[in-house]
Computed example of a mutant assay.
Amino acid sequence: MTKKAAALLLAASLAVSVCAMPVFATGTSLPGSKGSGPSMTEVKYVVTEAYEWTVPALIDFGKDAGVNEKREVNTTLDKDGTNTPSTGTDGTAPKVIVTKNVISGKFLKITLEPAGGSTDFSVKNDEGVELKYTVTLTDTTIGSDVKTLNRKIGTTGTEKTILAVPAGTNTAEAKLKFELSTATTGTSEKAGTYTGNVQFTASIAT
């Protein structure tokens, strides 16, 4: 056999060998061949869970109301609204507002309760003198559903819930009324700066 013929035979042999090699998957492809059965392709889409909400930073009952008086603050302002203290007229503060609700559970639940494990809504001065107040959930707007409730907020169980925003509804708001009762004994109030806190909590309910 001449060198030229041998070279041609080798080239033909290599060509057959290359053509006979199976093709394997590379990168983002899956292999398939006769008799291998069906191949599965994953289909994917992601929605990132996130929610955003705001609450009033301050409830200001004002000052010097006198004995056996009431002071009221209503949360009726938008989130950037400016608080006004309660004086001879009712004070104002921002509403509880949900501006984003992208969740995997059934509801975004927001609750309100006295801070520090207390069983009463109250404020105290430096000497421990206590004045109590109530909180009433007056109105809610969840999506386009507006309700007038006028329900007193309790300190246990479902009594604490002010909003339950279902998944798929992006916005909601709650209006609250805070009402302080001043001293009920004596002929004058006891001086001091009375302070306290309430606690708002958001969680995803399944």
Results as ranks from 00 to 15, higher is better:
K4F: 09
G37A: 09
N125C: 11
P114V: 09
E173V: 07
W53L: 12
A6L: 14
T99Q: 04
T156R: 05
L149G: 04
P94L: 08
F200T: 05
G117L: 11
G143F: 01
D80L: 10
A15T: 11
L176Y: 00
F178G: 00
T158M: 11
I59Q: 04
T141A: 10
K63D: 15
E189S: 14
Y45L: 14
G117T: 12
F61N: 08
G154P: 05
G37F: 07
T169A: 08
P166E: 08
A11D: 03
I110D: 00
V129W: 02
T148A: 15
V18S: 02
I162W: 05
S104K: 15
E72N: 06
A167V: 07
T2W: 04
S86N: 03
S118R: 14
V146R: 10
I153D: 02
K160Y: 02
T75Y: 01
G91L: 09
L77M: 05
I153M: 10
K160E: 14
T201A: 10
T195G: 10
F121S: 05
E159T: 07
S29C: 09
A57W: 03
G91S: 03
P22Y: 05
G168T: 04
Y194L: 05
E130G: 12
T84E: 14
G192T: 07
E49W: 03
G154I: 10
G35P: 00
S181Y: 11
G143N: 06
T136F: 08
I110Q: 03
A174Q: 01
I97A: 12
T111E: 01
K34C: 13
G62E: 09
I153V: 15
I59R: 06
T201E: 02
S118Y: 02
K95R: 12
I142R: 06
T28K: 09
K147F: 12
G27P: 00
T26N: 11
L10H: 05
A11R: 06
T156G: 04
P114A: 11
K63Y: 07
T156M: 06
I153R: 02
T92E: 07
D145L: 15
S33C: 13
V129K: 09
A25K: 12
G186Y: 06
K190F: 02
